[in-house]
Design a protein around this nucleic acid. Structure first.
Length: 724
DNA sequence: AGCACGCCGACT
DNA sequence: GTCGGCGTGCTC
């Protein structure tokens, strides 16, 4: 008989979509709270995180033993556990899934992680001798050799030259490079690379940031080219000087290498690591561990990095804080920007939100004094000139191809003079849909309620939601008419039109359809930088981060679709997007030209955009939202139900509607989702709102726990939904 | 989510 | 006669 008095019991959070944690008896060594353990679960073995320990035996007869504690992961610190619990409560998500999302993937599996070997540092004892063996033209190799003047980790060296591993192996074999265990640099004097002079506004911002103590949320509102990054760098420098860590969040993976390079240049002796899902498993795990041990002083990452353990956290920076990529929209839904603010508050450190087009949420907070506003109105980046934004009214102009003749003229002039031009349209494919002129038939997806998009180059009709593909029919399936026409425009159709208009300078299309293969985007961007491609056609993708020095003209098509959208956030997003593409033009000294083709040149939206007055636009939008009781002036949530048949999904939502109305929540009627059927599942949604966040939260939480949801119906919640 | 159990249609 | 479809139910 076992001595029950001495037993410990652990509550373990598992990566299953169940709200509660599961209790296990501690069989061996007592694990710490926050440690990962492997447990039996039904017929499976799962990895979970210990969330609580107790000596009181749970009232459950079938209790089982913890199988093992692998000990390959440091226990999550209390603040990360608390952050995860907050996410679980706030977003009504299962705690186990939140915790799983916070860990590198290797720690979500029962398997013990063996990539445990000590981090190595590479160095060249005699750099001059090594350089002497290299050809003068081998620029990457020479850069790598230069970097080896001091001991460097492999990830740093790969950032210098992507082929680092191969060359290091050769040089090691030749005895020119040696390795030894990597030692984290002791905090001390911070050495910086060259620092540009600060403009008065930047200096004022840096001073204000430096003077503040404890938790202060800052909104750094700075126009494109005003040098926000320099403000981040100076603030980080102060953090490093105090021996603390800085967490820097960026919206997308492809923005990390650029910024990482800049940080490494500025702080050549500091340990900078990145955290994002594009990293190889081993590298991500090692970087995470360096962050968790406090060795990494600067942690640069995408939204998932907000969960990284950081024992010496001193500052959080959220770059492009308005960016929708900060929202996780699958699985556990959260806003990394909001969590960054929560975490800063938790740790009593400042958080710096930067943007040229702040989100209305942050703007409201700044206007109401909850965030402190820092403004950069002047251009500080050398060569940065404001692009000239012009409207091209399409009123009564004959445009057989959907492009204004003046736009074609401008393109021709730019191309003839040897310049580069970008045609921006936010729609992939050849044309949105294929349609029959006779009977009005439109290509629809068999599995979803979405339209199939024509991709002419692959001769496919493709669903952008579920991936369903078919060959385009030769004749109309309904009436047999052979004259099927593409309706509207997408990137591919524009590409075709431009190809016939400008045979001398073939257009290069860059969108998700032709950059899916790894490295293909980089290859295309290289063509652009080399000046081989001078006429670009692209979506969203091209708007972010990539600077094209020779770009003189940006033509925006299809902007109007954002003006009259049912989605109340569409205008806000359009503004940010247009400003971002506009910023691509004319960075190398000459002002670029941005032409926006529109049917509605009088729309107030364009007034603010052309004047470059985002503040006015944001204030106007906020006033509207207040009047219409839309976020951020009220709080919204969405209840979604999925089932095989629509009536079952609707039934659950109708019940929810009645219950939640009784609880004092404003509830719309349940409606079939925008995309009613997705991959064979019927979906419906219910939009809820309340002036106070807490009321909504409690009512929903209560409903989820008490409602009788029939099996076969899946209910999910989306707090602060971004799309409707 | 997995993974079982369980009860009805077309196949080696 | 069985293989297998996915409805239902459970996991400390």
């Amino acid at each position: 008989m076992t001595d029950h008095a001495a037993d410990f019991y652990a509550a373990v959070a598992l990566d299953v979509p169940l709200a509660r944690s599961f209790d296990y008896r501690v069989a061996g060594v007592l694990p710490a709270v926050g440690e990962r353990v492997v447990v039996p679960f039904g017929r499976q073995r799962l990895s979970g995180v210990v969330t609580a320990l107790s000596q009181i035996a749970p009232d459950f007869a079938g209790i089982r033993d913890i199988e093992s504690a692998p000990g390959d992961m440091p226990a999550l610190p209390a603040d990360v556990l608390a952050l995860c619990r907050f996410v679980a409560d706030y977003y009504l998500a299962p705690i186990g899934q939140v915790l799983a999302g916070a860990l590198p993937t290797v720690f979500r599996q029962p398997k013990v992680w063996s990539g445990f070997e000590a981090e190595l540092a590479y160095a060249a004892p005699d750099v001059e001798a090594l350089l002497a063996t290299l050809s003068a033209r081998a620029r990457k190799q020479r850069a790598l050799a230069e970097a080896l003047r001091q001991p460097r980790r492999i990830d740093e060296l790969r950032a210098v030259a992507s082929d680092a591993s191969r060359w290091l192996k050769d040089w090691q074999a030749a005895g020119q490079v040696i390795t030894r265990p990597w030692q984290p640099p002791a905090p001390g004097q911070v050495h910086t690379g060259p620092r540009p002079e600060l403009q008065a506004e930047q200096a004022a911002a840096v001073d204000a940031l430096g003077a503040a103590q404890g938790f202060v949320p800052w909104l750094l509102y700075g126009i494109t080219g005003s040098g926000k990054t320099e403000v981040y760098l100076r603030s980080i420098e102060a953090v490093l000087q105090r021996g603390q860590q800085a967490l820097v969040l960026v919206p997308e993976i492809n923005l990390t290498p650029q910024l990482e390079g800049r940080f490494r240049q500025r702080f050549p002796e500091e340990c900078v690591v990145s955290l994002h899902s594009g990293l190889a498993e081993g590298e991500r795990t090692r970087n995470w561990l360096m962050a968790a041990r406090g060795e990494a002083r600067i942690v640069l990452g995408t939204r998932l990095a907000v969960f990284a353990p950081l024992p010496a956290l001193g500052l959080i920076v959220v770059d492009e804080e308005h960016d929708p990529s900060y929202r996780q929209s699958e699985g556990v839904r959260y806003s990394a920007r909001d969590l960054a603010v929560y975490r800063a508050n938790q740790r009593k450190v400042p958080v710096l939100l930067g943007s040229a087009t702040p989100s209305l949420e942050s703007w409201k907070n700044a206007r109401e004094g909850r965030y402190r506003l820092l403004q950069l109105k002047q251009r500080a980046v050398t060569g940065a000139v404001a692009p000239k934004i012009e409207l091209l009214p399409t009123g009564r102009v004959y445009m057989p191809d959907g492009i204004h003749p003046l736009a074609l003229d401008a393109l021709a002039r730019t191309l003839n003079s040897g310049g580069q031009a970008l045609v921006f349209i936010n729609r992939r494919g050849y044309a949105p849909v294929l349609s029959c002129r006779d009977c009005g038939w439109i290509s629809g997806c068999k599995r979803c309620s979405a339209k199939l998009v024509l991709h002419l180059s692959e001769r496919r009709l493709r669903c952008h939601h579920c991936g369903y593909e078919i060959m385009p029919p030769v004749a109309c399936p309904d009436c047999g008419n052979q004259d099927l026409q593409p309706l509207g425009q997408g990137t591919q159709r524009i590409e075709d039109i431009l190809a016939s208009r400008f045979p001398e300078t073939p257009p290069l299309r860059i969108d998700r359809d032709n950059t899916r293969r790894k490295g293909s985007l980089e290859a295309m961007l290289a063509q652009v930088h080399a000046g081989e491609a001078r006429l670009l056609v692209g979506t969203q993708m091209l708007a972010k981060g990539h600077d094209f020095a020779k770009l003189q003209l940006v033509l925006v098509l299809g902007a109007d679709s954002g003006l009259f959208s049912v989605d109340f956030r569409a205008e806000e997003r359009l503004y940010a997007q247009l400003l971002q593409v506009a910023g691509r033009a004319g960075r190398a000294g000459q002002p670029g030209r941005v032409l926006i083709q529109t049917h509605y040149p009088e729309h107030p939206f364009f007034g603010a955009l052309v004047r470059g007055d985002y503040a006015a636009f944001a204030d106007e939008q906020l006033a509207q939202r207040k009047q219409l009781l839309l976020p951020p002036a009220s709080h919204w949530a969405m209840l979604r139900a999925e089932a095989r048949q629509m009536p079952r999904a609707m039934g659950v939502l109708k019940a929810a509607q009645a219950d939640l109305r009784a609880a004092g929540i404003t509830v719309n009627d349940p409606v079939p989702a925008t995309l009613v059927r997705k991959a064979g599942v019927e979906r419906a949604q219910l939009v809820l709102s309340a002036p106070q966040r807490g009321v909504l939260q409690q009512a929903l939480d209560h409903w989820l726990h008490s409602a009788q949801i029939p099996s076969g119906v899946r209910v999910t919640t989306d707090i602060d939904p971004q799309e409707f």
